[in-house]
Design a protein around this nucleic acid. Structure first.
Lengths: 107, 107
DNA sequence: TTAATCCATAGTCAGTGGGGTATGGATTGT
DNA sequence: ACAATCCATACCCCACTGACTATGGATTAA
């Protein structure tokens, strides 16, 4: 029941989570500590959000000693782009049908 | 602090709401009754979701007698597309910078 | 006029989820 | 070896929200 769009929308709906993802997109790979420093929430909260982002495929983690480096996985946004295109496509189809109808009426 | 993306993501995060919007995109204008028939939730719930979609600019309503017709406003998805493009842009910039760095190292 | 239909609002309730603190495992520094 | 750092998990709490029913205003049908 839970498709890819659902997971993405729910994951990105939270501002804190989206801000983390945005930082990773802007600034590249970052450790949990570095992310926590400017996140405005506690470290456990950041870890939890990163876990959710990872589960959605939006980030990936790389362990190096006692630190964990996270980086954005931009490809995970594809289903979102697809969904948007699909919605636009439906709209276009209905527009085309209307156009056809008007053409037929014109004849 | 609540930008356009936030409102869109939060609004589209709910499956019931997204399904309503999708139906309006696919099938065009529909009354509340028609939407309720296949929504799987009660009529007041549908009305509430439509209200939230309207507040996000994703739908518009047209009153006709005792019925209210709702239709999708596809343009409202623009901030979402912009956000995605922005994220992709950041990623591309970092990629370009890496490319430049590699070029400089090569010389 | 009276009854029936359409929709929106009000009020309630339970589940979800995002926040915190506490804690422990793993690694690094002394 | 011991202390300190980094991160993740466990646990709790509270606010939000999505669901329901009840109801009423507005419009249409009888």
């Amino acid at each position: 029941m839970s498709n890819a769009q659902d997971l993405l929308f729910r994951t990105l709906a939270d501002p804190t989570r989206r801000a983390l993802f945005e930082r990773l997109c802007r600034e590249g790979e970052k450790t949990v500590g570095a992310l926590t420093a400017r996140a405005g929430v506690s470290q456990p909260v950041v870890s939890k959000h990163l876990g959710i982002l990872k589960q959605a495929g939006l980030v990936r983690d790389r362990h190096e000693g006692r630190q964990t480096h996270y980086s954005a996985q931009l490809g995970a946004l594809a289903p979102l782009v697809d969904w948007t295109s699909e919605m636009a496509g439906f709209w276009q189809n209905r527009f085309d049908q209307l156009e056809d109808l008007l053409k037929r009426m014109d004849q």
